[in-house]
């Protein structure tokens, strides 16, 4: 299984689409951040990671679909089955790799939220300001990130 995991990670990090998807996520979050400037509740956008959760879901669906279908598209599934003789293990390791990728994307999403917030709103609407549930914007953001993480990953 370790061999299989190593192979899956190797394939994942060598795919341009996978490597560029954090940049796509950043671009989409920045678009939401800038376009939300003149709306009312700006803290809401910050605590929702500038719709990063939704964008991340879409990117993850694309990545997980691709990670399975590419094996059939390139005919490499035969080699994988012949090498490991366990279809469930192949599928399971692929899902593990997608989960790991999901963790990494959530990390990026957190960093991008901070960056986009400063680019879009400057120092107004600080992370320490009290917002929903008598918690700070940062605490609300963390709650969103963790709930999205457990929901998606």
């Amino acid at each position: 299984m370790i061999d299989l995991l190593k192979q899956e990670f190797f394939k994942l990090v060598h795919q341009k689409g996978i490597l560029f998807s954090p940049l796509v996520l950043f671009g989409l979050m920045l678009f939401v951040g800038i376009s939300s400037k003149h709306t009312g509740d700006l803290n809401y956008y910050t605590t929702q990671s500038f719709a990063g959760g939704e964008w991340l879901d879409i990117l993850l669906i694309i990545a997980s679909a691709n990670i399975v279908t590419m094996e059939f598209e390139h005919g490499t599934i035969k080699h994988m089955i012949a090498q490991h003789n366990n279809r469930f293990l192949i599928y399971f390791t692929k899902m593990m790799v997608v989960s790991a990728y999901c963790v990494v994307l959530h990390g990026f999403m957190f960093i991008f939220t901070i960056v986009v917030k400063y680019i879009s709103y400057g120092s107004t609407h600080p992370f320490g300001a009290i917002y929903d549930n008598n918690q700070t914007v940062m605490q609300n953001l963390m709650t969103f990130l963790f709930s999205n993480f457990f929901l998606v990953c």
Partner: peptide, 28 residues
């Protein structure tokens, strides 16, 4: 049996996003 067997079935099992050398690395 399969660990002692190498195969080319129908078409080469290769990924277009890797180089030839990376394929060898992939299979350790």
């Amino acid at each position: 049996m399969s660990s002692k067997t190498g195969a080319l079935i129908e078409s080469p099992s290769i990924y277009p996003f890797l180089t030839g050398m990376q394929h060898f690395k992939l299979y350790s």
